[in-house]
Simulated assay, not measured.
Amino acid sequence: MFKKEDCFFVGSFVKTHGVKGELVAKKSSDLLEKYKLESVLVDIDGGLVPFFITPNGLTPRNHASVRILLEDMDSEAKATRFIGCEIYVPFKDAPDFFEDKEDFEATALIGFTYIDQERGVIGTIEDIQDYSGNIVLVLELNGQEVLIPFSDEHFIEIDEENKSITMKTSEGLIDLYLED
């Protein structure tokens, strides 16, 4: 059985396309296109269910979305049930994803634990924001949204197995969020 902890979050289905069962997925990374995957895991009621992608069933739409046709998905009615479902890919299907720094996509870190070199575990990365090429990790700390810039100079380590990233957070940044 597949667990979310052992997978990359790659996007979610947002609408149908046409009447033959094709779905549009808002993607969080280019992982689907990069690895030309034959299958994906779809979160259905909290469980990850594998689905095969038909040959030529993955079509880029634009920089933020792709069209996907899953096997045995042959009608708009069947596809409609998948709207809102999240899509995952097992780590084993993209083993070198974090190794290629040129193609590294920070969005793959969603769901990873953020560890500060000095303070230890800060929280879970809930979102990634891109402000004109400046990547910002979004965490929650004590019920408050925390924004931490992601840069090579502060990066220390990514642990794929434990889904964690260790960084040296800029001095005083975490303290800003802890003050009342």
Rank of each mutant, 00 (worst) to 15 (best):
M1L: 11
F2M: 09
K3D: 15
K4D: 11
K4C: 08
E5P: 00
D6S: 14
F8G: 06
F9A: 10
V10G: 05
V10P: 02
G11A: 09
G11C: 05
S12C: 06
V14I: 13
V14S: 10
V19R: 13
E22V: 05
V24I: 11
A25Y: 03
K26S: 14
K27C: 10
K27P: 01
K27M: 09
S29K: 02
S29M: 00
D30W: 01
L32Y: 05
L32C: 04
L32I: 04
Y35Q: 04
Y35V: 03
K36I: 00
K36L: 09
E38A: 12
E38G: 15
E38Y: 06
E38H: 13
S39Y: 12
S39E: 15
V42L: 07
D43C: 08
I44E: 15
G47M: 07
G47N: 13
V49R: 11
P50Y: 03
I53P: 07
T54A: 14
N56W: 07
N56V: 04
L58M: 10
N62F: 04
N62P: 01
H63V: 09
S65T: 11
V66W: 02
V66E: 00
R67P: 00
R67F: 12
I68Y: 05
D74R: 05
D74H: 10
E76V: 06
K78Y: 06
A79R: 03
R81L: 13
I83H: 02
I83W: 04
G84C: 00
Y88Q: 01
Y88R: 01
V89Y: 09
F91H: 09
K92F: 10
D93A: 10
A94E: 10
A94P: 05
D96P: 00
D100I: 00
D100Y: 04
E102V: 12
A106T: 10
A108I: 02
L109N: 07
G111V: 02
G111L: 01
F112D: 04
F112A: 07
F112V: 01
T113F: 00
Y114F: 15
D116M: 05
E118N: 15
V121Y: 13
V121L: 09
V121R: 15
I125C: 02
I125F: 02
E126R: 13
Y131A: 14
Y131K: 14
S132P: 01
N134S: 14
N134K: 12
I135M: 14
I135S: 06
V136F: 12
V138R: 03
E140D: 11
L141V: 10
E145S: 12
L147Y: 15
P149C: 06
S151L: 07
D152N: 14
E157F: 14
I158E: 08
E161Q: 08
E161P: 01
E161H: 03
N162K: 08
N162D: 09
I165A: 03
K168S: 06
T169Q: 07
T169I: 08
E171A: 13
I174F: 08
D175T: 09
L176W: 06
Y177T: 11
